[in-house]
Every structure is written in structure tokens, then in C-alpha cells.
Amino acid sequence: MKSPVQPLRIGILALGWTLVCLGSWLAGCSIDEALPSAWVLGPTSKERLAQGTQDPKAAEQEILRALESLFGTATAPHWPLGDSQPEGAKVLAQAAQTYREECSHCHGLEGYGNGPSSQFIQPKPWNFALGVFPRSAPDGSEPKLPALVTLLENGIASSSMPHFARLGKPVLMGVAGHVLLLLKRTQVETKLVDAYLQGGPGSLTPERVEGILETWSAGPQSLAQPGR
């Protein structure tokens, strides 16, 4: 019995299809399709709001709005009072994208160390909200960009924190800058929760949020200019 279709022709078509799929994936066409893209509040903040307010959902929304006005979104972040030039915004967005692809599955999108893979590794991924970085700033001070870049280049021996040398120094500087942005964001989040619990719904006016920012340390802002 002769084949009604030509297996060779089908084989070539199948191979072509596979190559197209493979090529498009290697070109990164779909890499961003399903990455997490919305910042939420940390577990501690959620717990405090659940205990201290009558409508935790509304409280969360108000705090997230205030945070977004200061730090932007997970896909288009910015520093409060920071560089608003399109070029700077692009650099920050690229760094955020790299963080989402490479880091968020362990450290979490917001940096709370609670990404989906965190439950399967030990020691646990670092929680940026703690504000201390024993590996890159062992004296308890805020981490500096060069120390974070070195850590990302080398990883941490005997742990599940791998090296990211393949990304190159400019990209790693961006990622380290994004880590510092997340560190600041988590700190400001805690202050906004405090303010909300004191003032109640509607208390996070732009003036109040600006007042909270007065406690801002200018130091890390100047550090976190990725790619520069």
C-alpha cells in the first residue's frame, strides 16, 4: 500500500515548524507573556491591615495607589522624585524585566523572599524588606550598589543563590539598582501602613505621602541609577 501522503514532505514541514518555534523562543518572543506583573502588599502589611482595619481590601488598594504614585509599577518602576527622562525610565523598566525573569521566582516580585520556588530551597531567599543584607553589607548598613553587583556576579557559595555572570555587568548594575528600589519600596510600604492605621481611610493624601517621604534618605537614590 502506497502512502497517500509523502512522509518526507511532512517531516520537512515538521522540522521547519519546530525550528520556527525554537527560533521564536530563542529570540525571546514569548518570554514575557506570563511573568508576574502586579505588585501587591507584603504578608506582614496584609496581616496588620486585616487586624487593624474594618475593610482591609480598601486599605490595601489605598496603600497600593500611594505606592504606585511613588514607585510606579512592577513593569514600569521609577524612583520617587527620580529621573523622569524617557531613557532613564527605559533602563529601569529593563532592569525590572530582568529581575522578574531571573529573581522573582525565588525573591518574589516585591522582594519579600516569598517567590513560588522559595518554599523548596534552604536557606530561604533573602527578604529585602528586612533592610539588612548580611552578605553585601555585613555591618548592617544599607547595601551599596558595587557590593550587590559583586554578589550577583559570584552568587553565594553553598546556597541556592546562583551567579548571574552571564548577564554582564551593565545588566547586573540595573538589577542591583532594582533591588535597592524594592528595598526602599518595602520600607515606605511599612510607613504607609502605619499612617493608614493611624489616620484611617482617605488619610493617604498626596501631602501626607510627601510628608512620609521627608524621612527619605537621599543616599540610595543616587546609587540606583542602573546602567549608568
Binding site: A14, W17, T18, C21, L22, S24, W25, C29, S30, I31, E33, A34, L35
Partner: peptide, 18 residues
Amino acid sequence: LIQVTLGGWYRHGHGHTA
């Protein structure tokens, strides 16, 4: 074999297309 490639593409790329 194509299915295996597509499955791997989805598992490692997490894309809707795949």
C-alpha cells in the same frame, strides 16, 4: 517530537503561545 519541543517551550518559557 514537535510536541516534546512545544512542551519544553511551555515548561521553560511559560508562554501562552507555547
